[in-house]
Design a protein around this nucleic acid. Structure first.
Lengths: 156, 156
DNA sequence: CGGGATTGCGCAATTG
DNA sequence: TCAATTGCGCAATCCC
């Protein structure tokens, strides 16, 4: 709904200097031909720009032009496909990492719990010692702490 | 989702039916792309379009046409910006997740080590018991295992 | 300098 | 009806 007043003139497509439109019109394809050349005067063969190269537009009706376009079109397609592929890979990587993350967190949770259990046992033991409780040979409490319970933490 | 299969196989600039050319107007437009409108009438090859609506091409020299184009160009720009933004976000997310993963792995390493230490202590203890070593108050070995050593595992 | 790879842009068909 | 998407071609650059 709300829509600002018309955008007057939207000619952003304008490049700074040159816009060439090929001459002519063989059959179909007549284009409003206008050839705007950058105002800068240096009509030298070697422009100051680093790469500033502006080759002749190459006429649109030549075979070479057509060939070049065709090649470029293929290249563009290829490039875009690649780009899309890469994007998808990235997305996949996110999921992969997320999974791994969960796995790791689960592991941490487990380890933490085990650690907590062991700590409690230690504390208990410490208390026993402190309370001067001597374990003759069957206190029962600690003897239960066979390695078996602890084992599974390391693996996986 | 949704990515309709692009069927267009290979239709270069060949058979064309109608070519609309811009009529000058204000400033200059881009190169007139050839709008190909297939002349064939029958047409069974109509892809299952949801809307199945085919408006008349709308002449290119009308104000309305121009307005519509302008709007669409804006929408396209917007959409592409958004798309690019999203891609970058995804990339960032990957890095974020990678970092988090490292953090988690470090933590796991730490916890594992602590657990290992505790386990060893337990084993030692068990051995002492098994060997019939009575720890009245001078065994010295286990007494050292004060809670202090264990404490730090839980935090951070 | 040549030529593929990228990138920004507009067009048109579709989709929602 | 209109905005958002998407495939596509063109031209300017970039980059070997």
């Amino acid at each position: 709904m709300s829509k600002p007043p018309g955008q007057t003139g939207t000619m952003e497509a304008n490049r700074l200097g040159t816009l060439h439109l090929p001459t002519q019109g063989s059959g179909l394809q007549q284009v409003p031909q206008l050839t705007v050349v950058s105002p800068s005067g240096g009509g030298k063969a070697t422009p100051p720009s680093k790469h500033g190269k502006k080759n002749a537009p190459l006429e649109r009706n030549t075979d070479e032009y057509r060939q070049r376009r065709e090649r470029n079109n293929m290249a563009v397609k290829k490039s875009r496909l690649k780009s899309k592929q890469k994007a998808q890979d990235t997305l996949q990587r996110v999921n992969q990492l997320k999974e791994e993350n969960e796995r790791l967190e689960a592991k941490i949770k487990l380890l933490t719990k085990e650690l907590s259990v062991l700590k409690d046992l230690f504390l208990e033991h410490a208390h026993n010692l402190a309370d001067n409780v001597q374990p003759p040979s069957s206190t029962g409490t600690e003897s239960t702490i066979a390695p078996s319970t602890i084992q599974d933490s390391t693996d996986q």
